[in-house]
């Protein structure tokens, strides 16, 4: 196997992890990774040796995901890509332990796509803030504000789920 191919194959588990967490459906996630690899191979000549292969692949995957989501959003009854602007900051609760395993998946499902992407690229895939900005094609300031909004919303979801229902009735 060539070095370049090895670099790509090494990233497959990471692409699958990200894609699975993003789409919350293993089959769809693997379809997205397949599409990403196919496109990467078609565009291999565009990759600059010495640059970050991981960020390059995530960029391709992100673009495919956005295009697919855009197509979906044109169908009635589907949620689009628009950011939600709700103010989700609630009264600061106790330091809750938060939710159990696998509930993270459900909590992520409640976030807008753009916030989920940032949280996963940074918190799960450990991309630098600058690389995340490149992948998403937005300024780094946008990355940070999405990260903040997403994490605060996630925090609220986690702490609510950790709290018995009865306490939410105020």
């Amino acid at each position: 196997m060539d070095d370049i191919h090895r670099l790509i194959v090494e990233q497959i588990p990471h692409l699958r992890r990200y894609s699975g967490a993003l789409l919350r459906d293993r089959e769809k996630a693997d379809d997205l990774v397949q599409d990403c690899l196919t496109r990467a191979m078609d565009r291999l000549h565009l990759w600059t040796p010495g640059t970050n292969m991981r960020a390059w692949l995530f960029t391709i995957l992100h673009n495919l995901h956005v295009n697919a989501a855009r197509r979906l959003s044109r169908q009635p009854g589907q949620v689009g890509l628009d950011e939600t602007h709700e103010d989700l900051r609630s009264a600061p609760p106790e330091q809750g332990a938060g939710l159990a395993l696998r509930d993270m998946d459900r909590a992520l499902g409640k976030l807008p796509d753009d916030q989920r992407q940032v949280i996963l690229l940074i918190g799960l895939e450990d991309l630098s803030y600058a690389d995340a900005a490149d992948v998403l094609d937005v300024p780094i300031g946008t990355v940070m504000s999405r990260l903040n909004r997403g994490r605060e919303k996630l925090r609220e979801i986690m702490e609510n789920e950790d709290t018995p229902t009865i306490r939410r009735v105020k």
Binding site: G20, Q95, G98, R102, M104
Partner: peptide, 22 residues
């Protein structure tokens, strides 16, 4: 504390795929 916990939970929940065969 909450942000760190989120990162930990993300890894707990989604890392197993890294050990699967491609």
């Amino acid at each position: 504390h909450a942000y760190r916990l989120q990162n930990t939970r993300l890894h707990e929940e989604f890392d197993p795929v890294l050990d699967e065969n491609v």
